[in-house]
């Protein structure tokens, strides 16, 4: 794992109210373990199992303990700590770091950050931020829409009508997550989350119209920043020679970032209202998540009915 302090700072700035107290030029150092540490034991001189790859957090207790030491001891312990090549130090509760800490940090080229949060809250928030930064992610060619609480990613060859279908879905009251290119990220629970690239968020391209700004045309409710991925819809040109599953009994999945995501293939033939079909596919998937599989239930009902007739 390699996350630079600069990356961490950018991602955590808002949620953690972080600022740089010193060492602005050392922000390219990297966090090498996705957790944070309160270095109490290390400050008392015990360095066995010291997690030096983690962000070191100085809260009220650490500061009070340092202050209780003689100036000499204080400098010695801090030197020992920074000798471990820690990625960065964070001082919580807006406390200005002790002068010895700043001196040692700059001697070892370690940046010192400051947050207004209390220690526990900072650790919780920062852990989430680091986990997110470290989460496996990829860019996926496809348009993502939120349909009544379901994240649906539409993929298919260029010109098949992904954006047009998305537009029709937006007009029906659903929300756009991203057009054409979606950033997918696997979170710590294994779920896949989709979002737009920052630069193109809120925009989509419609052939013949060019680029449009979705919330200006359809209101803020037409946009959604991030959405869990529940279903992949593959749009493909209708091929009369191909045999499509007509029952929905066969469950298709697609592997994305090591996760199996349910998928459906929808043949696109002229005159078919694809937006409507995609909407129903999303609802049907929602029903399946609730434990109702319409195709399977009808089949079971049929088998029972046929069995009764056979024995009658």
């Amino acid at each position: 794992m390699q996350i630079s302090i600069a990356q961490f700072l950018e991602a955590a700035q808002d949620v953690c109210d972080l600022t740089v107290a010193s060492g602005e030029k050392y922000l390219d150092r990297s966090i090498r373990e996705g957790a944070l540490n309160r270095p109490g034991l290390a400050l008392s001189g015990f360095f066995q199992y010291f997690p030096q790859r983690r962000v070191q957090v100085f809260g009220l207790a650490e500061n009070a303990y340092l202050k209780s030491l003689s100036a000499e001891d204080r400098r010695e312990r801090l030197t020992q700590l920074f000798e471990q090549r820690v990625p960065c130090v964070v001082s919580t509760r807006s406390r200005h770091p002790l002068p010895e800490l700043l001196e040692c940090a700059s001697a070892f080229k370690v940046p010192v950050l400051k947050t207004s949060l209390i220690t526990n809250r900072f650790i919780n928030q920062a852990t989430l931020v680091i986990e997110n930064l470290a989460a496996p992610s990829m860019k996926y060619q496809g348009t993502m829409i939120e349909i009544m609480g379901m994240g649906v990613l539409m993929e298919g060859p260029p010109g098949i009508g992904k954006s047009e279908t998305a537009l029709a879905l937006i007009e029906r009251g659903h929300s756009l997550v991203s057009d054409d290119l979606t950033v997918l990220r696997r979170d710590s629970t294994g779920a896949i989350n989709g979002s737009a690239l920052d630069i193109t968020r809120y925009h989509m391209e419609i052939r013949g119209l060019g680029i449009i700004h979705v919330p200006s045309l359809f209101g803020v409710a037409s946009m959604r920043r991030e959405m869990r991925l529940d279903l992949v819809v593959r749009l493909e040109r209708f091929d009369p020679k191909r045999e499509y599953d007509r029952t929905g009994l066969i469950s298709e999945t697609v592997k994305i970032l090591q996760a199996e995501v349910p998928a459906v293939t929808i043949p696109v033939a002229a005159g078919r209202d694809i937006a409507h079909v995609v909407e129903v596919a999303a609802l049907n998937q929602k029903l399946k998540q609730l434990g109702h599989d319409a195709a399977k239930e009808l089949d079971e009902k049929l088998v029972r009915a046929l069995e009764r007739k056979r024995l009658a």
Partner: peptide, 10 residues
Amino acid sequence: KHGMHARPAA
């Protein structure tokens, strides 16, 4: 045995 249920129909 199960007759024409969904799978055979498909």
